[in-house]
Simulated assay, not measured.
Amino acid sequence: MRASHVREAWSTVKSDERGVMGRSSSPTLTTLGRLVRTYRDASGILQKDLANRLGYSDGWLSNLETGQLRPRSEQVLSIEEALSLPRGALMAVYDQLDRESLPGWFRPWLEEEKKATVVRSFALTLVPGLLQTIDYARAMLQDDEPAVTARMERQAIRQRETPPALYFVIDEAVLHRERGGAKVMHDQLMAMADAASPRLTIQVVRSAVNPRNLGTFTIATVDGNDVGYVETAVRGIVTSSRDDLAVLSEAWESIKAHAMPQHESVDFIRRTAEERWT
């Protein structure tokens, strides 16, 4: 597609937005959908033909073009390729969805997490986001699909060519706090147990011996330096303060020392899934 067509597409989208902005729950998703439709029309490709090229139904593409469906990043890249668009023509808009879906205070942490080579995370009451199933995330986020998609996309770091070393310690209360019903909990616990590997360590600390009960925190190693993330009652705090990190590191080592080894933890998680959630 020629650059002039790209400019025309943007002009059309901006004009269309003025008529729908008030009705849309996600202005950025609306913009993305209308860009797809406008670029498709400019290329002379019917909706059904583009859907067929992509391997999806007409309904899927229709929902995307009307701003009712948030695609995955690889789907957006496929659309760019199918429409012969300049690289980033759609992804530049797609990347803005995270800014809508994530609280402002969480975005700095997300950037650190993406670059991390090591992540150490302690969870007191809820399954860590990097381990959540989509159904558990939906229950946590009250079916806010853009937020659910953003949370699932965080897990892409687990599939990187060189993924970070991930270490999780969870209080056993995490395994008993219901989110989404028995089946969701059973599947979540089993998925968590299945995820355990040499580079993804999961340990359970019994609540009775857990030396810390004041909240969840994570320490990420980025470019050889540590940065911490601490959840509070109202927001998360990202910190690189030496004093803060010393406190978090000490807490991590203390909790880990009281946790069960990984093989025992995995057995405990599976047993809890069967005995508590079936």
Rank of each mutant, 00 (worst) to 15 (best):
D244S: 07
K14I: 06
D143W: 12
G19C: 00
W60I: 06
M140V: 14
A208N: 10
P146W: 13
T278R: 13
H263V: 05
S84T: 06
D187E: 13
R107P: 01
S84V: 02
W109E: 05
V266Q: 12
A233I: 02
A182S: 15
I157L: 11
E113P: 00
V148E: 08
S78Y: 09
R107M: 13
Q75W: 09
A246I: 02
V118Y: 05
R270G: 02
R18G: 01
F168M: 01
E112Q: 13
V234P: 00
A165T: 07
F268T: 11
F122I: 07
T31A: 14
P164K: 07
L77W: 00
P86F: 00
T66S: 14
L46A: 10
R271M: 07
S73K: 12
A233M: 11
F268S: 11
D171Y: 03
V184C: 12
I157N: 02
T232L: 14
T221E: 14
V238Q: 06
S24F: 05
V93N: 04
I45F: 09
R235T: 03
S240N: 03
P198M: 08
V227Q: 10
A173E: 00
D267M: 06
G228Q: 06
D143F: 06
P86L: 03
R40H: 01
F106Y: 15
D267A: 15
H263N: 07
T30A: 15
T28F: 04
M185D: 02
Q155I: 08
S26V: 04
V234G: 01
P71M: 14
G224E: 07
M21P: 00
A89I: 09
N210W: 05
E275A: 14
R40E: 02
T125Y: 02
